[in-house]
Amino acid sequence: MKRDYAKEILAGSPQAVARLISWLEDEDERAYSIMEELYPHTGRAYVIGITGSPGAGKSTLTDKLIRIMRKGGLTVGVVAVDPSSPFTGGALLGDRIRMSDHSTDPEVYIRSMATRGFLGGMAKATCDVVKVLDAFGKDIIIIETVGVGQDEVDIVGLADTTCVVLVPGLGDVIQSMKAGVMEIADVYVVNKADRDGADQLNMEVNARIEQDIHIKMSGWVPPVNKTIAVDNVGMQDLWESILKHRAFLEESGRLVEKRRKQTYQETLRMIHNELFRLIRDQLSEDGRLDRLVEEILERKRDPYSTMREILSEWLDSTPKYKEAL
């Protein structure tokens, strides 16, 4: 008997969710029809992004936030993203450890994901996973990622409220500015605020906010929350900041605007990804890609005309696309 995953997910089956997420990670085509069925049931969850350098305490913050949310009766989904090794393709996913208090709570679903080092792949899968957990009925979805690299910035773009976590002593402000993470913060968290340099860091962040002309124009000044997550200090205030930002987005109409932007990006990206995947897979299948690469290397051809040649083959000869043209 063929299983109806969409129905199972809507009925609350964590196993069906788990399998669908695996298919999304694997880019398994079985996922897409299910996603189509789930899509009408999405758009209800509120999405929080938590990003910051390794060792900033993201998982501990997430753990304590979950506790507050659960006390408030909210259900929670967590996507914790860690990098895959570019050399072996494997990954060590350790974020569950600090959330183990919630691991048997049926209203909390935690999923660890590896980036799998594929162009845009992580962003794509994460975006889909958020939808799955949304359709699954989670009130809040937390995306936890290391904030380095464009891909992660992309992911944060998925969030309604993005928290950027900084800690004293890591040179975080400069690093984060370089990585382009400072711009995307809706809420700043200065974690491990009992450490030397916390006040300094606080000043730096505030100065940064002062200077940023875009922030002044936006109508929302990101609050800077001090926390010591491991001792559960400052967590309630952080949660209030997130709620305030949510209220701001909803009351100002920005939430709709933000999601329109996201949908625009996402739709384009999906088309891009799927085209890319189809072409890549077909070219790789019969070894043609390798041959092309060799020829390009030997300067028998160039990559520019190769690109045009392939594209024209696809756009002209595939009936589906011919029709579209």
Binding site: A91, L92, G94, R96, I97, S100, S103, T104
Partner: peptide, 20 residues
């Protein structure tokens, strides 16, 4: 070693109940 062999490894840490 599992990760080096290309697996995705979720390490849960200590003190796990069978339920967890």
């Amino acid at each position: 070693i599992f990760a080096e062999e290309g697996m995705e490894v979720v390490y849960t840490g200590l003190r796990q109940t069978p339920e967890m």
